[in-house]
Amino acid sequence: MHVVVGGAFNGKRKWVKKFYALDDTASYQWFCGYDEQIHIADLFHTKQFEKITIIEGIEQYIFQIMNQFAEWRNYWDMMVEAWRGWEKEGKGTIVVIGNDITKGIVPVDQQERLWRDACGFCFQDLVKKADRFDIIWYGLNERLK
């Protein structure tokens, strides 16, 4: 698993596309948390994953999971375990892209605040389990793992 994190509009998507040479000829699966409609269940359907599977905007999926499940951490663990299981079978690599929302002013809104906390927790969990971790700064990567 490859975790890519950075601030908004720092060129994370562009960097991933270039790093994995994801042009028109490449076969990959791209899940985008910024789509109008997102389905968390998609992230469990590992049968649909391709050799390179990208999950962009993980913070948006985290937001959904938190709002839909009281025991959202269990759900999160199950999901990440499903990814790792798929990778262990040698089927490919999962690239998780997250917008780092953990660094601003403490939000007044409780939901926003909990979401931010959850992102901190989940990003840390992902990085712990990742083979590689990069932070993107205006198109440049800083490899931390």
Binding site: A8, F9, T102
Partner: peptide, 26 residues
């Protein structure tokens, strides 16, 4: 760019523009 609260349209577009400028400049 480190603000999660991109709810306001004005802030969203401002940060987006600045982020894209920074990328091109770097």
């Amino acid at each position: 760019c480190w603000e999660g609260a991109l709810r306001s349209k004005l802030v969203y577009h401002y940060i987006r523009l600045l982020g894209h400028l920074h990328q091109r400049i770097v």
